[in-house]
């Protein structure tokens, strides 16, 4: 493991990463992440699973540059992450569309802030809107969309800035089963076309196994990396694969790990 880290030139590397939240009123400390060591290669699709509160969002927030590690560091393209950058974009867990902008204006928001809004990019934005299945809704306002449609706008917005690292925090959690599977396929299609390194958080284990090259299993108290599982299933992956025994073995294995972690965690929070 240490050897391969020296040989390869990873896209992202987390070294001895600790993140501690300090409540500025009480001074109370919560260790959200403890000693996270991992590497992600260029073009890899990574899924993170783990019980609620184990620090998945915290990890992404550290990668996007919102949170400073209390110890250790994260290197992106061998450069230490010090704050948000144009090379990353994030699809947030909570809705974050501007209510007074229509779908197209929202999708353009990221590039607009980066002063890169050209007519070509606008065409790209329209393409992504179509790709996430919202063609014809360009002029609609967020309140006219369902929660799942809003999440898809978020995805289109994150893709339009054309990041080299895409961070997705439970982007499909508000979708119904059919749309979810459709979006999983679409995301894989977009990913195979663009080969953007992606980190995807989900609570659905079969979603993780279906999408990922590797699945990171996080445990809680404090948040730590429990396992790093390589998913050796050929691509392109058909949805039918989800009923394959080979696929289900991965799912079972990860289930076991998370169950074990959850039982350690208990319900005392």
């Amino acid at each position: 493991m240490a050897e391969s880290a020296v040989q390869t030139n990873p896209k992202l590397r987390s070294q001895f990463l600790d993140v501690t939240y300090v409540n500025n009123k009480t001074g109370h400390e919560v260790v959200a992440l403890k000693n996270i060591n991992l590497t992600i290669e260029e073009g890899e699709f990574i899924c993170i699973v783990g019980p609620s509160g184990c620090g998945k969002t915290t990890f992404l927030n550290t990668v996007i540059g919102f949170i400073k590690p209390s110890n250790g560091s994260i290197l992106l393209d061998n450069k230490k992450i010090e704050g948000p950058g144009r090379d990353r974009s994030m699809v947030f867990q909570s809705p974050s569309l501007l209510p007074w902008r229509n779908v197209l204006e929202n999708v353009m928001y990221g590039v607009e802030l980066q002063k890169r809004a050209t007519p070509e990019i606008k065409k790209l934005a329209v393409d992504y809107i179509e790709m996430v299945g919202l063609k014809g809704f360009e002029k609609h306002y967020p309140h006219e969309l369902s929660g799942g449609m809003q999440q898809r706008v978020n995805l289109a917005r994150a893709l339009t800035v054309d990041p080299s690292l895409l961070l997705l925090d439970e982007p499909f959690s508000a979708l119904d089963a059919q749309t979810r599977e459709f979006m999983q396929q679409e995301l894989l299609r977009i990913w195979s076309e663009t080969k953007k390194t992606s980190i995807f958080i989900t609570h659905q284990i079969d979603e993780a196994v279906y999408l990922a090259d590797r699945v990171f299993v996080f445990g809680a108290r404090p948040g730590h990396l429990v396992d790093d599982i390589k998913i050796e299933i050929d691509r392109p992956r058909d949805l039918k694969i989800k009923r394959d025994p080979h696929f289900l073995k991965y799912v079972d294995h990860i289930w076991g790990l998370i169950e074990n972690e959850s039982s350690k965690q208990g319900f005392d929070s």
């Binding site: 996007i64 540059g65 919102f66 948000p84 950058g85 144009r86 990353r88 974009s89 994030m90 947030f92 909570s94 809705p95 974050s96 501007l98 928001y109 990221g110 802030l113 980066q114 800035v161």
Partner: peptide, 16 residues
């Protein structure tokens, strides 16, 4: 705050 977080993730300046 969710909107501000999203804007910051796109490297928005305070003025933006």
């Amino acid at each position: 705050q969710n909107l501000i977080k999203a804007a910051r993730s796109f490297t928005a300046t305070e003025f933006q």
